Amino acid sequence: MPNYRRAWVQGGTYFFTVTLRDRRSNLLVREIDRLRRVIAQTKLNHPFHIDAWVVLPEHMHCLWTLPPGDADFATRWKVIKSGFARRIPQGESRSIEQQIRGQRGIWQARYWEHLIRDKTDYQRHFDYIHINPVKHGWVTAVKDWPYSTFHRAVAKGIYTNDWAGDLLLNVRAAERR
């Protein structure tokens, strides 16, 4: 079994990418209300702060800040992914291994996680999250994607409603590592 190296920092801020197994699916936006309810319930039982989040049809990106003394993002993702899967009618294709284990075939088994290092790293990931619907061609203006914390960021004065005028510049800046 692989030994995945994770950065466990109590109270840390993390960027995540979580993806559906079927990359052609639109399940996440089709079932956005169920996903939101599962996330809200998870936050009640396992608190964390949502700094930024975007839900696309088949994947999502988010920035979370965990509470002081807590580094357990893995439990939160397990609860979100399993809670969402339990609320979705069965019907997806499953591998033989998934069938034997009684697992659903909704999510990719793992997720991408990145510990935010500094303010610049935070800003790049924050911007990347919000520009993502444009990057993937779902909309031509960030403000037009409804499943994003972009609108909350505008209300807080972090962005203007017409943010991301030079889309290529913003996407390239966010992808630098």
Rank of each mutant, 00 (worst) to 15 (best):
G137K: 13
I80K: 08
G11V: 04
H125V: 06
L63P: 03
R6L: 04
A71L: 13
I106C: 04
H59C: 00
V9T: 14
R24N: 09
N132H: 12
Q41C: 08
A153I: 05
Q108V: 12
D72L: 14
A85M: 03
W8G: 13
L27M: 15
P67I: 12
I116W: 03
I50G: 12
R5C: 03
N3D: 13
V29Y: 10
T120H: 13
R76I: 14
A85F: 04
T149A: 05
Q99T: 09
I50W: 09
E58F: 11
A40L: 08
P67H: 09
W138E: 07
Q108L: 11
E58G: 03
H130S: 00
G91T: 04
P146T: 05
I106Q: 06
W53D: 06
V154M: 14
V9Q: 15
D22Y: 01
I32P: 09
F84L: 01
W112A: 02
T42P: 01
N161I: 01
K81N: 15
W77Y: 01
A71Q: 14
W107Y: 11
D51N: 14
K78N: 00
R86E: 11
R176P: 03
D162F: 12
I80Y: 08
R94A: 13
R94M: 10
W8Y: 13
G11P: 10
G105F: 07
A71S: 15
F16T: 00
H46W: 09
N45T: 07
G165R: 13
A153Y: 09
R177C: 08
H130M: 06
T19A: 14
Y147M: 04
E58R: 07
P146N: 05
W138Q: 08
P89T: 03
K135N: 12
P68S: 09
W138N: 04
D162V: 12
D162N: 15
L168M: 07
G102Y: 04
T140C: 08
W8E: 14
G83Q: 04
R117K: 12
K78P: 02
L35H: 05
D22L: 01
T75I: 02
